[in-house]
């Protein structure tokens, strides 16, 4: 038995466990992983417009848009114990506005259903990128840092909007235990997001003369933090940091990559051109992560949730291989 199983079954009562957990965004790479880890312990209900490939038999999946009436029926028919919303988008793609995928409107609806049908717990997985990398930032940003984002990255703006809406929901509805998780760059064998796509390149582009410190969170450690957030009594905003901090160059060296250093203005123009042409996989707004650091202070999660990364720094880095 994994230790993860013990934490879920020992603290919450048997009756509560029969009530399902709804996972919004279950068909994504991370959503499917989370479902596979959880389905044998708790009844799971998935909401996602996309089909769920390789769905475990005991997971109930509704392939609906959260804004449709059918979505509310899910909350009406199941006595939902918690909503886990995987807000973090793993694969920003050229030509597809992120806000559509983010579905801020859909989230507003889902939270409204939770309020109407007395769901006691909501866990929203945001990202530390909402703070935005910047030269004036403190090295370890705390949860009360303003969400500055990145100036010319409209896609991130939707995510910030989403995070802020979740915050206002947290303040407006004290009867619901709302948890917002803001993990640093999530990596792992199943994840396909901007950081992992970048780290999987044989010749990744770097910015000449810049080598920011970065934090990485293993996908399994993020799952651990979600499980801890589901515990009764936990509410609030938590940064989730990784097992340590390393320069980007050390990560690339560990992975055996051969970085191609490019002058920053040149790199910016190049990446934007490629992205607009639909060839580049790397969103130009992410480039600033190669220039400035965007690290979080994870001490609150360690203190309140009892979160401890189980993967070492080296294991976490190598997980993208």
């Amino acid at each position: 038995m994994s230790p993860r199983k013990k934490t879920t079954s020992s603290r919450s009562s048997r009756a509560a466990e029969q009530r399902p957990i709804v996972i919004a965004g279950i068909s994504g790479n991370f959503g499917r992983l989370l479902a596979r880890r959880l389905h044998s312990d708790v009844p799971l209900v998935g909401i996602d417009k996309r089909p769920f490939k390789g769905k475990p038999k005991d997971v109930v999946h509704y392939q609906v848009d959260a804004r449709r009436r059918r979505a509310e029926n899910i909350f009406r028919h199941h006595r939902v114990r918690a909503l886990v919303h995987l807000g973090l988008v793993h694969r920003p793609q050229p030509g597809r506005p992120l806000y559509r995928e983010m579905n801020v409107a859909g989230t507003i609806k889902l939270l409204e259903y939770c309020r109407r049908h007395g769901v006691p717990k909501v866990v929203l997985v945001s990202t530390a990128a909402v703070y935005g990398p910047g030269p004036t930032h403190s090295n370890f940003l705390t949860e009360d840092t303003p969400l500055a984002g990145v100036a010319d990255y409209p896609e991130l703006q939707a995510l910030i909007e989403w995070d802020m809406y979740a915050q206002s929901f947290f303040w407006k509805h004290p009867q619901i235990e709302t948890v917002i998780l803001r993990p640093a760059h999530v990596v792992g064998p199943h994840v396909r997001n901007a950081p992992t796509n970048y780290l999987r390149l044989q010749h990744p582009l770097t910015l000449l003369g810049f080598d920011p410190m970065i934090q990485l969170v293993h996908e399994e450690d993020l799952i651990q933090s979600i499980l801890l957030a589901l515990e009764p009594g936990i509410r609030g905003i938590f940064n989730i940091d990784g097992p340590g901090e390393v320069p980007l160059s050390a990560v690339l060296k560990e992975l055996g990559r051969r970085p191609v250093p490019v002058l920053q203005p040149l790199a910016k123009a190049l990446v934007r051109r490629l992205w607009n042409m639909g060839i580049g996989k790397f969103p130009p707004g992410e480039l600033v992560h190669l220039q400035f650091q965007c690290m979080v202070d994870g001490s609150l999660a360690r203190r309140v949730l009892g979160y401890r990364p189980r993967y070492t720094l080296r294991q976490t880095i190598r997980s993208v291989l």
Binding site: G244, E245, P247, E254, T312, L313
Partner: peptide, 12 residues
């Protein structure tokens, strides 16, 4: 220092 020889603040 961590296993990569830097401290959390980037000191090497």
């Amino acid at each position: 220092l961590n296993e990569f020889g830097v401290d959390p603040w980037g000191f090497d």
